[in-house]
Simulated assay, not measured.
Amino acid sequence: MRLIMQAAVNMAVFLACALLFPSGFILANMTVAAMAAVVLAFLNRLLKPLLILLSLPLVIISLGAFSLIINAAMLELTAWLIPGFGFESFWWAFLVALLLTLANLIFVDQGSIQIRR
């Protein structure tokens, strides 16, 4: 269920970024957005934990900020796998990664945070 919700949030952010940043973010159509969202969700489940483990010293030294670089790299890998989905530069991927991180934190991870009273 979490994978489906993460893919839905990713697709919504991709569509919003395509409207907000037409010069830096390349998105052919909604089908490409859906495919890229599913591929990114699977890559985040399969490959991202390994990348974080391998770069753990950098993640710790940067207080977690290096994970945004990993997220941007995951987006670039998704762009390499999905035709019609891409970025003009790595910094556009970084900006979309930042927006994806914020959206997933608000909409997906909010359910896993419990406040005890």
Score class of each variant (00 low, 15 high):
67 S>F: 04
70 I>W: 00
47 L>W: 11
76 E>T: 12
72 A>F: 10
73 A>Y: 00
61 I>L: 15
68 L>C: 08
62 S>V: 07
56 L>E: 09
57 P>Q: 12
75 L>H: 12
68 L>I: 01
63 L>H: 09
78 T>H: 04
65 A>H: 04
53 L>Q: 06
76 E>Y: 11
75 L>D: 11
75 L>Q: 13
54 L>I: 08
79 A>S: 11
61 I>A: 15
73 A>H: 00
78 T>I: 02
76 E>A: 14
49 P>L: 01
51 L>E: 00
60 I>S: 06
74 M>N: 00
53 L>N: 04
70 I>A: 14
52 I>S: 05
61 I>Y: 14
49 P>W: 05
58 L>I: 02
49 P>C: 01
50 L>H: 04
69 I>H: 07
77 L>W: 08
67 S>C: 09
50 L>I: 04
59 V>N: 13
70 I>C: 10
60 I>G: 01
59 V>F: 09
79 A>M: 05
68 L>T: 01
60 I>Y: 11
65 A>K: 05
52 I>Y: 03
70 I>G: 03
48 K>D: 03
72 A>Q: 01
58 L>S: 09
79 A>P: 02
53 L>Y: 05
73 A>I: 15
64 G>D: 04
57 P>N: 12
62 S>N: 05
52 I>C: 09
70 I>L: 15
63 L>V: 11
50 L>V: 06
65 A>E: 00
67 S>Q: 11
58 L>P: 01
72 A>G: 15
68 L>G: 09
68 L>H: 12
77 L>S: 06
56 L>C: 12
66 F>Y: 14
68 L>D: 09
64 G>V: 10
70 I>T: 01
75 L>I: 01
66 F>V: 02
73 A>W: 00
51 L>R: 04
48 K>H: 05
65 A>D: 00
71 N>C: 02
69 I>N: 10
68 L>R: 12
